[in-house]
């Protein structure tokens, strides 16, 4: 199946399934600055996924921020700093905590679940979860459609590529990019899962084929927004950068206080809101 056909099928499946979102206020996380909700909505499968949503108090519309899920069973709740400035939605994809009714993802294990066939790969559904979250966020009346960002790893690139409307993309980590090469660099997880899977008898060609649908450099040409890529090795990321229409590079310093502040300020400046450090000096 071609790349375009694969993803068109995902879009078609998603379009046929109403999200039927349910929002519940969380008083403990609601403050003078913002109202906090849990969100449950339906993605492909059908499967109910979970999100943490916060909407600033006051007169909107506000900039929107989608946080795609990290690789792991738990995602942090959106930080109060973000909750005060953005309509922010943090997604828990299928199998992660709070979205694990019926399917609890294994770590290690999720990265290779169903990977021998692109049509059964778990990340096909996880990508759909991210796209559903994007549709939900952009449908909120409180969100300024001219100021919507997505932040995260490769899933942020994929989401921005497949859903118009993201003017800003902030990529802080990479999982699928050149994964079949990166897996050879060390025995560190999560990429070591690919090596574990191959030891179980799978073929490198099968994994390469499936992963090619998820490599962000394949999605990058369709990303319309300005994209900040925080990188450790710009040379390694060359093919991704060259595929992005409007890239910007941030060379991480590994002084994560400095890096965190830069990444926050970059997005804030794009959307005309104050920069805020998580570390209160």
């Amino acid at each position: 199946m071609t790349f375009d056909a694969y993803w068109a099928a995902v879009d078609d499946e998603l379009a046929a399934i109403p999200g039927r979102p349910v929002l519940d206020v969380v008083p403990a996380r609601t403050t003078d600055e913002a109202t906090f909700y849990t969100v449950r909505t339906t993605s492909t499968g059908p499967y109910r996924v979970y999100g943490n949503l916060s909407i600033p108090k006051g007169d909107g519309p506000f900039p929107g921020l989608l946080i795609t899920p990290r690789y792991g069973s738990v995602n942090n709740i959106p930080h109060p700093n973000d909750r005060s400035r953005y309509v922010v939605l943090g997604l828990m994809h299928r199998g992660q905590r709070l979205a694990d009714e019926g399917f609890a993802a294994a770590y290690p294990g999720l990265l290779t679940m169903g990977i021998d066939d692109p049509s059964t790969y778990i990340y096909r559904g996880i990508a759909a979860d991210c796209l559903r979250a994007a549709e939900f966020l952009m449908g909120l009346a409180e969100v300024d459609p001219a100021r919507v960002a997505v932040t995260g790893d490769d899933l942020a690139v994929l989401t921005a590529a497949r859903r118009p409307g993201f003017s800003t993309v902030r990529v802080t980590d990479l999982l699928f990019y050149r994964a079949m090469e990166a897996r050879l660099k060390s025995c560190m997880y999560p990429l070591e899962e690919l090596n574990d899977h191959l030891r179980g008898g799978s073929s490198t060609s099968a994994l390469s084929t499936t992963l090619s649908y998820f490599d962000p450099s394949q999605h990058a040409p369709a990303v319309a927004g300005r994209t900040l890529l925080a990188v450790d090795d710009a040379d390694w990321c060359g093919s991704l950068l060259s595929a992005l229409p409007d890239p910007e590079v941030y060379q991480v310093t590994h002084l994560d206080g400095t890096d965190n502040d830069f990444l926050d300020a970059w997005l804030a400046q794009r959307f005309g809101v104050p920069a805020m450090s998580k570390f209160v000096a």
Partner: peptide, 10 residues
């Protein structure tokens, strides 16, 4: 707190 233990091969 939010991490799962990874296999300590290293």
């Amino acid at each position: 707190y939010i991490s799962e233990p990874t296999i300590p091969k290293e």
